[in-house]
Nucleic acid binder design. Structure first.
Lengths: 171, 171
DNA sequence: TCAGGCACGCAAGATTATTGCGTGCCGGCG
DNA sequence: CGCCGGCACGCAATAATCTTGCGTGCCTGA
């Protein structure tokens, strides 16, 4: 997997990316006003972010609780046998299950942290059974039902800006 | 907190919302073609979703690893004293910390599940110290470093469509 | 000092979003 | 049974936004 070096980001890049990851609904004009650039300059920068894969996609965020009862849960999972193939199979199942919002492979006694979203306690329970109980390669799993969502999002803390090409060393 | 009843969603609503939460970058024309409506009809539906709060916002999703090294972690936290005030203070700290992507209050022996995103192991460690070790009301916390992100997103499984106004009771 | 590269602003042109208007489909009521 | 809103739609005109070509200035390296 060839990982191109992270592109140099100046202060404006950081500002733009931060604005966009908070609200991508703004117009190029607005963004430009915010960072002090013309709409076309903003446009060209954003196009570059996309080309370089900094921005992967643009999504609408839905409010779960406006759709009626919603049950969220985080599940801690430990596999039994740990072969590459077993991990692959588990990951694939997570990816292909719509109710799985997020799935992280982690260090320590637990192997995975999974975030589930279901439309009812019943569905959540069924889901747990199907995903974890029916899998004979799951050694142990623990469901942490979510009482309250304090904060949600995928917002990233951005690295400090790097003035592109100047010796600056100075304070 | 008055919670208005979840709006009736027909099949087209569900399709549209699902398309939008996967890729909000499409044009009204595209969306319309997909669900079999004119651009203006699509536009009006989307405007309604916003008015009703089904769509809370529209964001650009960034790829953490394109910004150089990135450390993700999930942290399990148990408070010591559990007064309302203590919970409020903790929640507020999570909300105001940019590196906290998500924070859920959960049932069981753990009180919170927190998802962190930092730019280095060092920052991650400092963050843990600041957020949890320096708080004398944290009884215990456990950091699960993320090795691999199998799946990420905030995509919701949508409820089944409800044909708006017909007696159907059938079948 | 002089190219070459790069990002910019401006303005024209293309695309997309928004809105007014008329139509058709129910559902309720006389 | 027929009439009367209410509602969502499509179409078309208008408005807003996005995209691109072009010329300019700045910085860098030869």
């Amino acid at each position: 997997m060839p990982e191109p070096p992270p592109p140099r980001l100046d202060e404006i890049d950081v500002q733009l990316l931060d604005l966009l990851q908070r609200d991508a609904g703004r117009t190029l004009h607005d963004l430009g006003e915010w960072v002090g650039l013309s709409p076309s300059a903003v446009q060209r920068r954003i196009a570059r972010y996309r080309r370089d894969g900094l921005i992967t996609r643009q999504v609408a965020v839905l409010d779960p609780h406006r759709f009626g009862p919603t049950v969220l849960a985080t599940v801690l999972v430990t596999l039994d046998r740990e072969s590459f193939e077993h991990h692959r199979a588990f990951a694939e199942r997570m990816r292909s299950t719509p109710q799985v919002q997020q799935c992280y492979q982690v260090a320590g006694p637990w192997d995975y942290v999974v975030v589930l979203a279901a439309r009812s306690m019943r569905e959540c329970s069924r889901l747990g059974n199907r995903l974890f109980k029916a899998d004979d390669n799951i050694r142990r799993y623990e469901t942490l039902l979510v009482f309250d969502t304090v904060k949600t999002g995928l917002t990233l803390p951005l690295p400090a800006p790097q003035p592109p090409r100047s010796q600056d060393g100075r304070s």
